[in-house]
Simulated assay, not measured.
Amino acid sequence: MTHVIELTGVAKRYDSAGAPALGPIDLSVAKGEALAVTGPSGSGKSTLLNLVAGLDKPTEGSVTVAGQQVDQLSEHGLARFRREQIGIVFQFFNLLDDLTVADNVQLPAQLTGTSRKKAAARAAELMEVLGISKHALAYPGRLSGGERQRVAVARALVNRPALLLADEPTGALDTASGHDVRELLVDLHRGGQTIVLVTHDLALAEACASRTIHLVDGHLALETPAEAAR
């Protein structure tokens, strides 16, 4: 089995005298798996996501993503690795308001050196699939929350990343928009995209994930295996 994520003996301390914010834990995520990470505030969910994304480095242990030990990369190497291998969807979209929807989506592709023509073609393909083609020339501020999150998902997928990270992707949305994004994540998983979803919403985790882990005080308190998650 091919694993996209391998965490071995990983711990993160922000205070050398205090308890770790996370771990130590071991965790593997297989290619094509959708893993939901749940737990109360302060349980280590965001720390785990940041370590996987290479936004933070572990105090102990190793973090390997898509075959690359990310905790050993330089800042430049990490930035390039994230652009090429990891797509991130945030709770509050993080779109650039002075760029059109199309330009927001294709920007990460251009940053990796993809020609503007090829980036635009890939962006158009994703916008069609995600039902936002009609907004291609609009600016994010003119869209609903659900539409902006679809733009954010398209942007995260434009470089065909090995891993999609979603941090509370429905947390800032109304019920209807949240349902739309949930169905989108379900479709992406069915299509083979590897996903790690951090959420407080147990219904979202149940709908989207093939496996769920629950963190408490930085430790793995409960794991729901794939066959019991549906």
Rank of each mutant, 00 (worst) to 15 (best):
residue 5 I to R: 00
residue 7 L to Y: 09
residue 7 L to G: 05
residue 9 G to N: 10
residue 10 V to K: 08
residue 10 V to W: 12
residue 14 Y to M: 13
residue 16 S to K: 14
residue 16 S to Y: 13
residue 16 S to Q: 13
residue 17 A to F: 13
residue 18 G to C: 10
residue 19 A to N: 13
residue 22 L to S: 04
residue 23 G to N: 02
residue 26 D to Q: 01
residue 29 V to M: 02
residue 31 K to Q: 14
residue 31 K to T: 06
residue 33 E to I: 07
residue 33 E to F: 09
residue 34 A to D: 01
residue 35 L to Q: 05
residue 36 A to T: 08
residue 37 V to K: 04
residue 37 V to A: 01
residue 38 T to E: 06
residue 38 T to L: 09
residue 40 P to Y: 10
residue 41 S to C: 10
residue 41 S to Q: 05
residue 41 S to Y: 00
residue 42 G to T: 02
residue 43 S to M: 05
residue 44 G to S: 06
residue 44 G to R: 03
residue 45 K to W: 13
residue 48 L to V: 00
residue 49 L to M: 15
residue 50 N to K: 06
residue 51 L to W: 03
residue 51 L to D: 04
residue 53 A to P: 05
residue 54 G to Q: 11
residue 55 L to M: 14
residue 56 D to V: 03
residue 57 K to G: 11
residue 58 P to S: 10
residue 60 E to Y: 10
residue 62 S to F: 03
residue 67 G to C: 07
residue 69 Q to L: 08
residue 70 V to N: 07
residue 72 Q to T: 15
residue 72 Q to P: 06
residue 73 L to I: 12
residue 74 S to Q: 09
residue 76 H to D: 15
residue 76 H to R: 14
residue 77 G to S: 12
residue 78 L to Y: 11
residue 80 R to N: 08
residue 80 R to G: 12
residue 81 F to K: 00
residue 82 R to D: 06
residue 83 R to V: 06
residue 84 E to F: 05
residue 87 G to F: 01
residue 92 F to W: 08
residue 93 F to L: 03
residue 95 L to H: 01
residue 98 D to M: 12
residue 100 T to P: 14
residue 100 T to I: 09
residue 103 D to R: 07
residue 104 N to I: 01
residue 105 V to S: 09
residue 106 Q to C: 08
residue 106 Q to E: 14
residue 107 L to G: 14
residue 107 L to W: 04
residue 107 L to C: 08
residue 110 Q to A: 07
residue 110 Q to G: 12
residue 111 L to V: 05
residue 111 L to Y: 11
residue 113 G to M: 10
residue 114 T to K: 15
residue 114 T to R: 11
residue 114 T to Y: 04
residue 120 A to L: 05
residue 121 A to C: 05
residue 122 R to N: 05
residue 123 A to K: 01
residue 124 A to N: 12
residue 131 G to S: 11
residue 134 K to E: 15
residue 136 A to T: 00
residue 138 A to S: 12
residue 141 G to I: 00
residue 142 R to Y: 09
residue 146 G to S: 07
residue 149 Q to C: 04
residue 149 Q to V: 00
residue 152 A to P: 08
residue 154 A to T: 00
residue 154 A to M: 05
residue 156 A to I: 07
residue 159 N to G: 04
residue 160 R to G: 06
residue 163 L to G: 05
residue 166 A to Q: 03
residue 166 A to K: 02
residue 169 P to Q: 01
residue 170 T to R: 06
residue 174 D to K: 07
residue 176 A to K: 15
residue 181 V to I: 15
residue 183 E to N: 13
residue 183 E to Y: 00
residue 184 L to M: 14
residue 186 V to E: 04
residue 186 V to K: 09
residue 193 Q to L: 07
residue 193 Q to V: 14
residue 195 I to F: 10
residue 197 L to E: 06
residue 198 V to G: 03
residue 198 V to Y: 15
residue 201 D to C: 03
residue 203 A to E: 15
residue 204 L to Q: 06
residue 206 E to R: 11
residue 209 A to N: 06
residue 209 A to G: 10
residue 209 A to M: 06
residue 213 I to G: 02
residue 221 A to L: 13
residue 221 A to S: 15
residue 222 L to Y: 14
residue 222 L to C: 09
residue 224 T to F: 07
residue 225 P to K: 06
residue 227 E to Y: 09
residue 229 A to K: 09
residue 230 R to H: 14
residue 230 R to S: 15
